[in-house]
């Protein structure tokens, strides 16, 4: 088993863990945190796949894709957090449950 394959599979496990919490958490802040774990898991897989040829050259293209992905992720996280703060200001709630809204 090669180094890159270990990390690729680790990335998938982390993305799966993130997905589970993304779907099951009700607290929105925790959802966003879980979303960041999904993203990092995918990036881990992508970066590792760049070194999939054991003695071959490192493919720079996935690296560039992940850099773009990291920037997109931080942008989306910032928007989500700003929205969540505003939502909390308005409703005092951190979940989507209506009964907690007042």
């Amino acid at each position: 088993m090669s180094t890159s394959l270990i990390y690729a599979l680790t990335g998938i496990v982390i993305a799966g863990l993130g997905l589970f919490h993304y779907l099951s958490q009700r607290n929105i802040l925790r959802k966003i945190l879980a979303g960041n774990f999904i993203g990092t898991g995918i990036f881990l897989f992508l970066v590792s796949s760049a070194a999939r040829q054991v003695d071959g050259p490192i493919d720079p293209v996935p690296h560039a894709l992940v850099l773009t992905g990291i920037v997109v992720a931080v942008s989306a996280t910032a928007l989500l957090l700003a929205l969540v703060c505003r939502y909390h200001d308005e409703t005092g709630s951190l979940t989507f449950d209506e009964e907690n809204d007042e």
């Binding site: 959802k31 997109v72 989306a76 989500l80 929205l83 969540v84 939502y87 308005e90 409703t91």
Partner: peptide, 15 residues
């Protein structure tokens, strides 16, 4: 605000 928060959470999953 609530609708856009929901939308973004789902759109992010889609992306």
């Amino acid at each position: 605000i609530k609708a856009s928060l929901r939308y973004l959470l789902l759109a992010l999953l889609g992306s």
